[in-house]
Amino acid sequence: TLFEALYDYEARTEDDLSFHKGEKFQILNSSEGDWWEVRSLTTGETGYIPSPYLA
């Protein structure tokens, strides 16, 4: 399933992933509550992002 970022986000820890509004992601793991592990389709990087920032 693909999701798109609604807002920009700046990583706060080394496990987080910074991203920009409009960036698209593949969800790798959504079992961690509000923090999902994703792969950016723009950069190929993986990390955790806050799920409320996605649509």
Score class of each variant (00 low, 15 high):
Phe25Asp: 00
Leu17Met: 13
Glu14Thr: 12
Tyr53Asn: 08
Phe3Ala: 05
Gln26Gly: 02
Asp34Thr: 07
Ser30Glu: 09
Thr43Tyr: 01
Val38Thr: 00
Asn29Ser: 12
Ile27Tyr: 04
Pro50Val: 03
Tyr9Ile: 04
Trp36Pro: 00
Thr42Asn: 06
Leu28His: 01
Val38Leu: 02
Gly22Asp: 02
Gly44Met: 05
Ser30Val: 10
Leu41Met: 11
Ser51Val: 10
Leu28Cys: 06
Ala55Glu: 10
Thr46Gly: 01
Thr42Lys: 11
Trp36Asp: 01
Pro52Glu: 15
Tyr9Phe: 06
Tyr48Gly: 01
Gly47Glu: 05
Pro52His: 15
Thr1Cys: 14
Ala5Leu: 06
Asp34Arg: 04
Glu37Tyr: 15
Arg39Val: 12
Gly44Glu: 02
Gln26Lys: 05
Glu23Tyr: 03
Glu23Gly: 15
Leu28Asn: 00
Tyr9Leu: 09
Ser30Lys: 12
Thr1Gly: 09
Glu14Phe: 07
Ser31Glu: 10
Ile49Val: 15
Asn29Thr: 06
Ser40Ile: 12
Phe25Ser: 00
Arg12Tyr: 09
Leu41Tyr: 04
Phe19Cys: 05
Ser40Phe: 03
Pro50Tyr: 15
Ala55Thr: 12
Ser51Pro: 10
Leu2Ile: 15
His20Ile: 11
Glu23Arg: 00
Ala55Asp: 09
Tyr53Val: 05
Leu41Pro: 04
Arg39Met: 13
Leu17Arg: 14
Glu23Lys: 00
Gly22Arg: 00
Leu17Pro: 02
Ala55Ile: 13
His20Phe: 12
Tyr48Asp: 00
Pro52Asp: 15
Phe19Ile: 07
Glu14His: 10
Glu37Trp: 13
Tyr53Cys: 11
Leu17Trp: 05
Lys24Thr: 07
Gly33Leu: 09
Pro52Cys: 15
Ser40Leu: 06
Pro52Thr: 15
His20Ala: 11
Gly44Asp: 03
Trp35Val: 07
Ile27Ser: 00
Val38Met: 01
Glu10Met: 09
Thr1Tyr: 11
Ser18Ile: 13
Leu28Trp: 01
Trp36His: 01
Glu23His: 05
Leu2Trp: 13
Ser51Asp: 03
Ala11Cys: 06
Lys21Pro: 03
Leu2Gln: 06
Ser51Leu: 04
Thr42Trp: 10
Thr13Trp: 15
Leu28Lys: 10
Glu37Gln: 10
Thr42Gly: 04
Arg12Ala: 11
Pro50Ile: 03
Trp36Gly: 00
Thr43Ala: 00
His20Asn: 08
Gly33Ala: 12
Leu6Tyr: 07
Pro52Phe: 15
Asp16Ile: 12
Gly44His: 04
Tyr53Pro: 04
Glu4Gln: 09
Gly44Pro: 00
Thr46His: 09
His20Arg: 14
Ser40Glu: 02
Asp15Thr: 11
Thr42Tyr: 08
Lys21Ala: 09
Leu6Glu: 11
Thr43Asp: 01
Val38Gly: 03
Gly22Met: 14
Tyr53Asp: 08
Ser40Ala: 05
Arg12Met: 13
Asp8Gln: 03
Pro52Lys: 15
Trp36Ile: 05
Tyr9Cys: 05
Glu4Arg: 01
Ala55Gln: 14
Pro52Asn: 15
His20Pro: 03
Arg12Trp: 15
Asp8Asn: 06
Trp35Gly: 01
Thr1Asp: 13
Glu45Asn: 10
Thr46Cys: 07
Phe19Asp: 11
Glu23Thr: 05
Ile49Cys: 03
Lys24Pro: 03
His20Thr: 12
Leu54Val: 10
Gly47Met: 06
Lys24Ala: 06
Tyr9Val: 02
Pro52Arg: 15
Leu6Trp: 13
Pro50Glu: 05
Ser31Trp: 09
Ile27Asn: 01
Leu6Phe: 11
Glu4Thr: 14
Asp8His: 04
Ala5Phe: 15
Lys24Tyr: 12
Gly22His: 03
Ser30Tyr: 10
Ser40Tyr: 02
Gly33Val: 10
Gly33His: 11
Gly47Gln: 02
Ala55Arg: 04
Leu17Ile: 12
Glu4Pro: 01
Glu45Val: 10
Trp35Asn: 07
Glu45Leu: 14
Ala5Trp: 04
Trp35Lys: 09
Ser30Pro: 06
Trp35Ala: 04
Arg12Asn: 10
Arg39Ile: 12
Asp15Ser: 14
Glu45Cys: 11
Leu2Glu: 07
Phe19Thr: 03
Ala55Cys: 13
Thr42Ser: 11
Tyr48Arg: 14
Lys24Phe: 13
Ala11Met: 03
Pro52Ala: 15
Leu6Ala: 07
Gly33Glu: 13
Asn29Lys: 03
Tyr7Gly: 04
Phe25Val: 01
Ser18Val: 06
Ser40His: 07
Glu45Gly: 06
Ala55Tyr: 10
Leu28Gln: 02
Ser31Ile: 09
Val38Ala: 06
Thr43Val: 01
Leu6Gln: 08
Tyr48Gln: 06
Glu4Tyr: 09
